[in-house]
Design a protein around this nucleic acid. Sequence first.
DNA 1: AGGGTAAGGTGTACGGCGTACACGGGTCAA
DNA 2: TTGACCCGTGTACGCCGTACACCTTACCCT
Lengths: 231, 231
Amino acid sequence: MTQPMDAPRRSPLNRGRVLRAAVALADHCGIDALSMRRLADELGVVPMALYKHVANKEQLLDGMVDVVAGEIDPPVTGADWQAAVRQRILSARRVLLRHPWASRVIESRASPTPVVLDYMNSLAGMFRAGGLSVDLVHHAMHALGSRMWGFTQELFSAAPAPDPQARAVMLRELAGRYPYIAEIAAAATHDEGSLVGQGCDDQFEFEFALDLLLDGLARLHQHGWTPSRPK
Amino acid sequence: MTQPMDAPRRSPLNRGRVLRAAVALADHCGIDALSMRRLADELGVVPMALYKHVANKEQLLDGMVDVVAGEIDPPVTGADWQAAVRQRILSARRVLLRHPWASRVIESRASPTPVVLDYMNSLAGMFRAGGLSVDLVHHAMHALGSRMWGFTQELFSAAPAPDPQARAVMLRELAGRYPYIAEIAAAATHDEGSLVGQGCDDQFEFEFALDLLLDGLARLHQHGWTPSRPK
DNA sequence: AGGGTAAGGTGTACGGCGTACACGGGTCAA
DNA sequence: TTGACCCGTGTACGCCGTACACCTTACCCT
């Protein structure tokens, strides 16, 4: 009499379903919309039910990072280390662009999960395979920082990109107090779109900086850099 | 009868006092402890009183960033651009180390305040004074990213730094799954302290990466880099 | 067959948060 | 005297994460 057959008795939750639902929710509604209550709603469940599968919200976020880290392509083989690292990081970037919330969440993690360590370990291994010394690899990882995940800070990315006329006005008053920023913005708007943040090609900027670092590391490596003998 | 003289009728709040108190509170108790209620308590006032001086918490955080940005030394004069930029950024770093919460807050701002624009503008001006093209300065600013504020992500910095014995055990099990991370950690611990995050000298890592970028930019500049002709 | 155990979903409740809104007292100009 | 204002107050709302006790269901062991 407890209607055993009309509702197909939804399959029980598990950690994987919770994490995937959380990623989907963050993808669609933004990370700020991700609350335990909202996520539970989305899964047709009461908030406290989630705590049977994740210890708390921090661990939920850890798990979400694992999900996106798992989407990064494995390393390519048969290329020189610089190209291989470059490709891998650009793959990470493509993943991060699919999950715009992820960069902030990655930064906010207190300690790395095994999946995150896997990625970092494999990246370090690619440098090592190219012959770089342990010390140089160490510094390389630090120098890359969050860029190894395919994102850069994008300080102040929220440019509403107004119409051309309003933009010209804005540029003019910018030029008064911030001439150097204004000239950059002006140059960028000539080429493409709007103000800084949209007027410049984020992908180009990312690759420019990545190559600056990788080229610099390659140069140090070629010249036999050692900790005691900088440059 | 309303005791007009026993309590010296505390001077009225103002935006500056609110911001300075917020900075002090974040310095002492961490950014997570900074709530409007707690800050109001600290100022001997009711929470809603703060809203007469800052529009909301976001604007409070903006103001706090302004306070710390104001502590950065002005540019030095008479040095070549590379040394000048380097010194300025290292000054920013010293400020940020005094306010450990600030890096996260800076990253979280949606759009720059005038004070923040001042700093970025002046940094761009230093590059320009060195003769770099507008485009190269543009890319330089992006490549620096948050590093222009003197910090790097410090992904996963929270290493409790246990005793040497426990560290050895940890290193051993690290070596099984993450050999390349383990060798870095091992090399770093030989030299100095504990695991990654403490075992390596953050200041050295920062300067290494900063110089890698600045040297790379200098090289591009020397070789007459233009947007169309990379490398 | 029966009873114990464990897994997994529920309901209620607590303390904290940011902040909208109406109010009150003080100061000062008209 | 009156009224406008500045600026601190009090109350209240809706959100958050999550502790804790509870109930149902499924399964295993005797």
